[in-house]
Design a protein around this nucleic acid. Structure first.
Lengths: 120, 120
DNA sequence: TCAATATTTCAATAACCATTGAAATAAAAG
DNA sequence: CTTTTATTTCAATGGTTATTGAAATATTGA
C-alpha cells in the first residue's frame, strides 16, 4: 500500500466490529486458516453476512481464500496489515516517535505475548 | 484505548479520505495546530463539511480544539494514534513480528524521515 | 444421478454517512 | 451597537453499508 486511497480501503475494512473480529480470528488461526462456516459460527453471525464481510476484507487485501473440498478456507494476509502499519507510522505520523510511540523506538523492549480476549 | 469498540471508532474516523487528510495536516501542523478555516482551505472542502469531519475526529479522540480569538484551533492528539497502533500490533496482530513487521523488530533501522506527499 | 453440505449471490430493507446551503452563534473591529 | 469574520448547527438530500432470507452454485458421497 502506498497511497491514501488504499489506506482508506484497508482502514474501512477494519473499521467494522465483525470484520475486525474476523480478521483477529484469522490471525489467531494462522497458518492453517479457517473455513467460512466455522468462522461464522465463532463470530455468531449469519453465513451470508460473513460472506459480505469476507469479500470486503478480500477486496482490501487483508484476507485470501482457497477452496478445500466444499469448504472455503480464509487466511489473514500479514503483508496487508504490515503495509497499513507502515503507512500509519511513516506517511500519516511522519515517523515521529512522539506519535508512533514505542513502536519506532529501537530501545523499547517489545512485549510480544498478548492473550487474545475475543472469541478467538 | 483498550477494547474493540473504541478501536472501531478510531479506525472509522481515519477510514475516510477527508478525515485522514485532515489528521495528516494536523500532524504536520504540530505543535501549533491549525484553524478550522485554514484547514478547510487546504483540503478544499466546505467549512460545514469539515466541521462534520472534525467533530467525528474529536469524538474518536484524534483531535482536540480550543478557541483562539474568532478562530478555533485544532490539534492532532498523538496519544490516540499511539493507542491505535498499540491495539493493532498487540491486540489485533498478537504482537507477532511476522505481521507487525519491522515495527516490532528492535534490530530494524527506523527511517523516520518521510516527506509528506499530500496537501500538507 | 440424487441428496446433503458449504458457501455465495441476490433483492429488499433499514440504518448510517457525507455534502450542501441557509441560519445560528461567537468574537473582534469600527 | 452594528458589521464583519470564523465556525457550527440544522434540515434536506443522495449515496453507501449491513443484515436478512431465499435462491443459486459447487462439491462430496451414497
Amino acid at each position: 500500500m502506498t497511497d491514501t486511497d488504499s489506506a482508506v480501503t484497508v482502514l474501512s475494512s477494519l473499521a467494522q466490529a465483525h470484520r475486525l473480529d474476523a480478521f483477529r480470528c484469522l490471525v489467531a488461526a494462522e497458518p492453517d486458516g479457517l473455513a467460512a462456516g466455522e468462522l461464522a459460527r465463532q463470530l455468531g453471525i449469519a453465513p451470508a453476512a460473513l460472506s459480505f464481510h469476507l469479500t470486503h476484507l478480500g477486496h482490501a487485501g487483508l484476507v485470501t481464500s482457497s477452496r478445500q473440498g466444499r469448504s472455503i478456507i480464509y487466511r489473514a494476509n500479514f503483508a496487508a496489515m504490515r503495509d497499513l502499519l507502515g503507512y500509519l507510522t511513516q506517511d500519516c505520523c511522519g515517523g515521529r516517535p512522539e506519535i508512533c510511540g514505542d513502536l519506532l523506538n529501537p530501545d523499547t523492549p517489545q512485549d510480544c505475548e498478548t492473550p487474545a480476549k475475543s472469541s478467538c
